[in-house]
């Protein structure tokens, strides 16, 4: 058996260390060694995106990364998005627009949407759908997830998310 390695990560602003085998997947280390259980294990085959975390500015599927590959990385999980003042606007909008039903995919959805809105702060509906294509939801049909993300973007851009023209339609973009 291979020796354990000394893994050092910054997760949600906190410096964390553990011993783990190189073959352990990042999702297992997060959930079982650090008890960070926001990222979920859905398919465990790189398809569903429930395990999505933010790693050095990239949305990654933590089931398809050995913890060893993340050595020294800065990671944000859904637990790191809210502040003492309250939930992140994306979380608020997922609640407001009913962007979840069973909730299993939600941590991955929100963590991915968080990165998407940093790269593209004011996306069109089509860009949201394309940018969220690595996250599967088996309940909602995506409609309300897309609405929630567009509403969050509207608020983050200083628009009233409840106004009729807050969210750009594909026709307006074209």
């Amino acid at each position: 058996m291979a020796d354990k390695m000394h893994l050092k990560l910054t997760i949600n602003g906190e410096h964390l260390e553990t011993l783990c085998e190189p073959r352990e997947l990042l999702i297992h280390v997060l959930r079982e060694r650090f008890n960070i259980t926001g990222p979920h294990i859905g398919c465990e085959t790189s398809h569903c995106g429930a395990c999505t975390v933010d790693l050095d500015g990239k949305s990654v599927k933590a089931c398809t990364l050995f913890a060893a590959q993340a050595q020294g990385a800065t990671i944000t999980t859904v637990e790191g998005l809210a502040s003492p003042e309250g939930m992140h606007v994306l979380q608020e909008m997922f609640r407001e627009h009913h962007g979840l039903q069973c909730g299993y995919c939600t941590p991955g959805m929100i963590t991915r949407a968080w990165r998407l809105l940093q790269e593209n702060p004011d996306p069109t509906e089509e860009e949201v759908r394309f940018g969220m294509a690595g996250n599967l939801c088996r309940c909602t049909g995506y409609q309300n997830i897309v609405k929630a993300i567009l509403a969050a973007a509207a608020i983050m851009n200083g628009r009233d998310a409840t106004a009729d023209d807050a969210v750009k339609t594909p026709e307006e973009v074209a």
Partner: peptide, 11 residues
């Protein structure tokens, strides 16, 4: 879904 043990190198 965990592979057999291996040694990890990062040159």
């Amino acid at each position: 879904m965990i592979p057999p043990a291996f040694e990890y190198h990062r040159p």
